[in-house]
Computed example of a mutant assay.
Amino acid sequence: MQEDGKARFAFGEIMVHQLSSFLRQTLPRVPDWIVFDYAAYWAPRVAAEFGVPCAHLSIFNAAVLSFIGPSASLMGCEGVRATPEQFMELPEWVPFESTMFYKPYEARELFKPCVLPDASGVSETYRFGRTLEDCQLIAVRSCPEFETDWLHLLGKLHKRPVIPVGFFPPSPPESETDAESESRWRSILQWLAKQKPESVVYVAFGSEVKLTSSQVHEIALGLERSQLPFVWALRAPADSHGGPAALPEGFEERTQGRGLVCLGWVPQARLLAHPSMGGFLTHAGWSSIIEGLALGLPVVLMPLLFDQGLNARNLVERKISVEVPRNEEDGSFTGEGIATTLRLVMVEEQGQPLRAKAKEYREVFGDEKLHDRHVWEFLKYLIEHRRQQA
């Protein structure tokens, strides 16, 4: 992590020079705005030298950004959180009740890489606070139809315009025309075509974090014990040194015909949109949640890092989803817990309200016209408040 801090500092210095050089070349007619995502905390400082305003386009939703807190707290001033335990409760600046906070194992895993200073002398939270403090506008991948209260709170915390830009839901997948791609996925699509409507669970945990071999083992046991049809997009575990995942002995033979394990990249949007898909076991990344709910799929959540735990609490609180049971001290889970949760969401009578709620939220998450309108409103704001050129 110390090496990462040194590399990030060096990268930031390079980017300061690059952005400054670019803006100098555009003189006398510099850009009207600079829009940037995540923690490019160096961008507003450079832009200000040329009189260019900056808009931060957040990859997090408004609820997560509000929990993260105001800039002063992030930069070590008023309201600063100095222990992991302070992330296990609702912060003082949230004026309404919510269960959206970290579990003990999540808070401890988050604290060192994000809150403690690295080799550059500052922390990841400081960089993010600097980003939010120095930009003139915060754009959020969300919409008031989903989280009005959180968007309103976010504006109060940062005392600057907060504009929702919609969810950017995935467009309906086009048919594959490339012969190699079609050949590669034909057998999977043929298998899906034989399954009952809304009967298959899709399993994927993103690309940012790799599971351990023991976690892969428990997920496999859970899928086997669930007795549900499944498609599992499986990546090599973190401790496999690039080798294939070690599935339980006999797993593929015992699940043959009922489940598919796909190694490497898969056309996720296309698979999720298939009529046979009935649920999504995911890491609770915001993009994956949007993909699932845009199609009306109930999501089973197993968060792994960063904002994912907060996303999971948010959806559970809204009764849209459920989490896989975890040991709150070490984050461990069991195959039995996965199997029970999957069956609850996919087939059991008790899970019917969750399935109905997911279809209800499809009207918000999957409404392309609604989200296009939010994008246009964002662009309209940028045009109306653009820099006045000399």
Rank of each mutant, 00 (worst) to 15 (best):
E218Q: 11
E218G: 00
A220T: 00
G222Q: 05
L223P: 03
L223G: 03
E224V: 00
S226I: 00
Q227S: 15
L228T: 01
P229L: 02
P229C: 09
P229I: 03
F230Y: 11
F230A: 07
F230L: 06
A233N: 11
L234F: 00
L234K: 09
L234A: 13
L234R: 13
A236W: 04
A236P: 12
P237H: 04
P237S: 07
A238L: 12
A238M: 08
A238T: 13
D239P: 07
D239L: 03
S240H: 08
S240K: 09
S240N: 07
H241S: 15
H241F: 12
G242E: 02
G242N: 09
G243W: 02
P244T: 06
P244K: 15
P244V: 06
P244Y: 06
A246L: 14
A246C: 10
P248I: 03
E249H: 11
F251Y: 11
F251L: 03
E252F: 02
E253F: 02
E253Y: 08
E253G: 03
R254E: 02
G259S: 09
G259I: 04
G259H: 06
L260P: 07
V261Y: 02
C262N: 09
C262Y: 12
L263A: 14
G264K: 12
W265F: 08
V266F: 09
V266T: 13
P267E: 05
Q268K: 09
A269L: 13
A269E: 15
A269V: 15
R270V: 04
L271M: 11
L272C: 03
L272A: 07
M277A: 10
M277Y: 06
M277S: 09
G278E: 02
G279S: 08
G279K: 09
F280H: 10
T282D: 05
A284E: 04
A284I: 08
S287L: 12
S287E: 11
S287V: 08
S288K: 11
I289F: 07
E291I: 04
G292D: 04
G292P: 05
L295P: 08
L295N: 09
L295G: 10
L295S: 04
L295W: 06
L295R: 15
L297T: 07
V299T: 15
V300C: 11
V300L: 05
L301E: 03
L301R: 06
M302K: 15
M302W: 13
P303G: 09
P303C: 13
L304G: 12
L304I: 13
F306I: 14
F306W: 14
D307W: 01
G309E: 09
G309S: 12
G309V: 05
L310D: 04
N311P: 05
A312I: 03
R313K: 14
L315C: 10
E317V: 05
R318S: 15
R318K: 13
K319T: 14
S321E: 07
V322H: 08
V322E: 14
E323I: 02
E323P: 03
E323T: 12
V324T: 03
P325F: 01
P325A: 05
P325W: 02
R326T: 08
N327S: 13
E329V: 11
D330M: 10
D330H: 11
D330V: 04
S332G: 10
S332H: 05
F333V: 00
F333C: 01
T334K: 01
T334P: 04
T334G: 10
G335F: 01
E336V: 15
G337V: 02
G337Y: 01
I338S: 01
